[in-house]
Amino acid sequence: MLKENNITFPDMKFAEEKMFFFDVFFHVNRVSTKVQPIQYVNRTDENSKSLTKTTDVIYIRYHNLKVIDFVKEKKSPVEKEKAAFKQL
């Protein structure tokens, strides 16, 4: 499915996983989720090198806006768009 739709991980420093997920989301009919965590992100004060802590807030917002624009450009059915925006 990734190859057929030319879906790749975008070259972004921030929010790249959102962009990738939404690109996949708009090409599938169904998504399943798990209750159990599969990844832990350390954003506590002890992790001073966290990307979230070392990246300028304007830069973060800029990339989040790129994701929003990407979702809007897909012109997907309203229900899929709403589901995507709930994840932001």
Rank of each mutant, 00 (worst) to 15 (best):
S48H: 13
T33M: 11
D56E: 09
T52H: 14
P77W: 00
M19R: 14
K53R: 15
K74P: 00
L65A: 04
T54W: 13
V57I: 12
R30H: 12
F20T: 10
R43Q: 10
V31W: 13
E79R: 03
N47G: 10
K53I: 04
E79H: 02
S50D: 12
F70V: 00
T54I: 11
I68A: 14
F14T: 03
Q39L: 11
K18A: 10
P37M: 04
D23A: 05
P37F: 09
V67Y: 15
V78W: 01
E16S: 14
N29I: 00
K75D: 02
M12Y: 15
M19V: 06
I38P: 06
K3H: 11
I7C: 11
K3V: 03
L51K: 13
D56S: 01
D69N: 13
Y40N: 08
V57L: 09
T8E: 15
F85G: 04
E17R: 12
T55F: 08
T55V: 05
E4F: 06
K82L: 09
D69L: 10
E46L: 11
H63V: 00
T54R: 15
T33V: 10
F85L: 05
T44L: 15
V57K: 13
F26I: 02
M12F: 14
V31G: 06
Y40S: 06
M1V: 03
K13A: 13
P10F: 05
Q39Y: 14
V35P: 02
K82Y: 12
K74E: 01
S48T: 12
V71M: 06
K13G: 15
T52F: 15
S76D: 02
M1L: 09
S76F: 01
P37Q: 08
L65C: 02
S76A: 04
K3F: 09
K75E: 02
V41S: 14
F21C: 08
R43I: 03
R43M: 10
K82E: 07
E79D: 00
I38L: 10
N6D: 15
L65M: 06
K80A: 05
A84S: 10
F85H: 07
N29M: 04
E17N: 15
V57G: 05
T33P: 11
K74A: 02
N64A: 05
N42F: 13
V35W: 03
L51T: 06
M1N: 08
V78S: 00
F22K: 04
F85M: 09
H27D: 01
